[in-house]
Simulated scan of single mutants.
Amino acid sequence: MSECYEYVPHRLLRRRVRDTASGVEGVLMAVINENVSDTGIERWMELAYIRGASGREFTTAVTNVEPAPDQPQTAAGRRGQRSA
């Protein structure tokens, strides 16, 4: 019987990321190649585990992960753009 998961290295581990599917940002905690099948036929998928602001982790396909913007735009910065 094979293992049901395997850790995968990723360039954004422990960095702030955004899940493009949900728009939620958090810290990428792990990328794991998991057997996601609930039948006898194996189906492997790379899942990203992201820890959100609440401290809870959620999963998404690793293809949905992108770096989050470094600095959120401040209200003062947005006001300055509107008046330009």
Rank of each mutant, 00 (worst) to 15 (best):
M1A: 14
S2H: 09
S2E: 11
C4A: 13
E6W: 02
E6A: 12
V8A: 01
P9K: 03
P9I: 06
H10W: 01
R11A: 13
L13Q: 01
R14Q: 14
R16H: 13
V17S: 02
D19T: 01
D19P: 03
T20W: 06
T20G: 07
T20P: 07
T20M: 15
E25C: 15
V27C: 12
L28W: 07
L28R: 06
M29N: 08
V31E: 05
I32K: 11
E34P: 03
E34R: 11
E34M: 12
N35K: 05
N35P: 00
V36T: 13
S37K: 00
I41K: 08
R43E: 13
M45Y: 07
E46S: 12
E46I: 06
G55Y: 00
R56I: 06
T59R: 10
T60N: 05
T60G: 08
A61Q: 10
A61K: 10
V62G: 04
N64R: 10
V65S: 05
V65A: 07
E66R: 10
P67M: 04
A68N: 00
P69K: 06
P72H: 02
Q73T: 12
Q73P: 04
A76S: 13
A76D: 14
G77E: 14
G77V: 04
Q81C: 04
R82F: 11
A84I: 08
